[in-house]
Simulated assay, not measured.
Amino acid sequence: MSFLESPRPSDEEEAFYARCRAAYLSVFRSSLTNISSKQQLCHALQQAGRNPAHATLNKYWTPRTSKLNFDDFCEILKNEKNTEESELMRAFRKMDLNSDGFVSHGELEKALTTRGEKMTTEEVNAVFSLADINKDGKLDYAEVSFK
């Protein structure tokens, strides 16, 4: 097939690659820059709307991995589903132990230090201080941005 005969990418494909590029460029200065660590991969995936678990990161960043390029990143995004707002809201409600519409520092700490991939108290404090935008000591559904 010649260049003139090659199929034009669909609008959906173009939109997908535009989102990949936007996420990549929010972490790197150029799409020619390689991802050189698991932490960079995690950050780029988060910028693309993913919430990668350690197992997901380990799947793509093995002990033999030294770098991933933009095309590799796009392939990962094709394989890993986007975190839906409904999933995040469900998790938020699970942390709201007294169902008052807010997550206190204590509720967040209990959830993040006892379940799943456990965080340290210092990590919880950092997350809480970043998420508590209005600095009222609690997180409410409207305060936490899912977009």
Rank of each mutant, 00 (worst) to 15 (best):
R90K: 13
Y141L: 05
E123N: 08
Q39D: 15
Y141G: 01
V144A: 03
K147M: 08
A15S: 11
Y60E: 01
H54N: 04
K147G: 03
S99A: 09
K110D: 15
F3P: 06
L25A: 02
A18W: 05
M1V: 02
L77H: 12
Y17V: 05
R8N: 07
S145D: 13
T33Q: 15
L97D: 10
N98P: 10
K147C: 04
G106Y: 08
A126F: 14
R115H: 13
E122Q: 11
I76E: 02
L77T: 11
T113K: 09
M95L: 07
E87W: 02
N51Y: 05
T113I: 13
V144C: 03
A22M: 07
V103T: 07
S36H: 12
G106N: 12
N51H: 07
S66W: 14
E75C: 15
S6P: 05
C42E: 13
F128R: 00
L139A: 01
E80C: 01
F16R: 08
R21S: 02
E87F: 07
E5N: 08
F3H: 07
A22G: 06
S86Q: 11
K138Q: 04
K138L: 01
T113Q: 08
S2M: 02
K118P: 00
T56K: 08
R90C: 00
D136N: 09
D96I: 03
M89Q: 07
K67P: 00
K59R: 09
E123H: 09
R115E: 09
L45P: 03
E87P: 00
R50T: 07
K81G: 00
K59M: 08
R115S: 11
A111H: 12
V144Q: 04
C20F: 03
E117F: 12
I35E: 11
A22V: 02
E13S: 10
A142G: 01
F16L: 04
L32Q: 15
S31P: 09
I76L: 12
L108F: 14
H105C: 08
L88W: 08
L32D: 13
N79P: 00
T33G: 15
H43N: 13
M95I: 01
T113C: 10
E87A: 02
S86M: 03
G101K: 12
S99N: 11
A22Y: 10
K59W: 10
T114G: 13
L68D: 04
N79T: 12
R21Q: 01
K94Q: 07
M89K: 14
S37W: 07
D71K: 15
N51P: 02
M119C: 06
A131R: 06
S6K: 10
F92Y: 05
L108G: 04
K94E: 02
S145I: 06
V127E: 12
I35L: 14
V124D: 13
G101F: 09
S31E: 12
Q47D: 08
V124L: 13
E109P: 00
